[in-house]
Amino acid sequence: MKNNKLSIVLRGLIAENPVLVLVLGTCPTLAQTGNVIAALSMGIAATIVLVCSNMVISALRNIIPDTVRIPCYIVVIAGFVTVVQLVMQAYLPDLYEMMGVYLALIVVNCIILGRAEMFARKNNVVDSALDGLGMGLGFLLALLVMATIREVLGAGTFAGIEIPFLIVRDAAGVVKNSFTLPILTQAPGGFLVFGIMIAVINKIGPKKGEEKRKNFSCEGCPSATVCGRVACPENTELVTESDDRRDGGKEEA
């Protein structure tokens, strides 16, 4: 039993990391990873809401009828987000200012609604809480890693503390030279780092990525007309796989 419970938590951390493997909740990932403090606050706030809403929805799972389940979930999630919002505004105003509109956007964070739909309504309260914890921690981990990369390489600081050899100040404390790539703290850099992280995780992580790739076909991909892969003769691997799938189906005479 214990093994089972632990595996629920661990699954959310790496193997089914909501951001990097399931690719859910990308909006706060791109917006709130400019610096480590913002990422930390977002991760913790989302985790709290996720655990609480998972527990409540799991407790009510036999009462909520199927036809209105989505509105019910959203009302519950919105309630918890509002509570977190009010508490932050009262006791942690600096963090509240920094998170801005993205705090309220946790309501529509796909991770929370997704886990409620996929896990909480089919499992008991304790399991749901553990799943929420695991997914939330996975979210937090992904955010922290991405924020570290973006802040250190993009602004030369970590959690606001300057790193001495990236930002060089002269005797008077004026910045003389900064070896940073400011684009990383802005939107394009966010997309770049996110994309590279997904690529790396799928390459070195457990084989979930491979299976996903085999299931998608090039023809179905919306970028088929502009992507080089379908036309590239070197990529025999992908082309023959989809050929196989085609031959497996109906064939025109």
């Binding site: 009510l60 009462i63 909520i64 009828p65 036809t67 209105v68 509105p71 019910c72 009302v75 519950v76």
Partner: peptide
């Protein structure tokens, strides 16, 4: 029933 449940929540 759904309407009631939703309203109560």
């Amino acid at each position: 029933k759904p309407v009631l449940v939703l309203s109560v929540i």
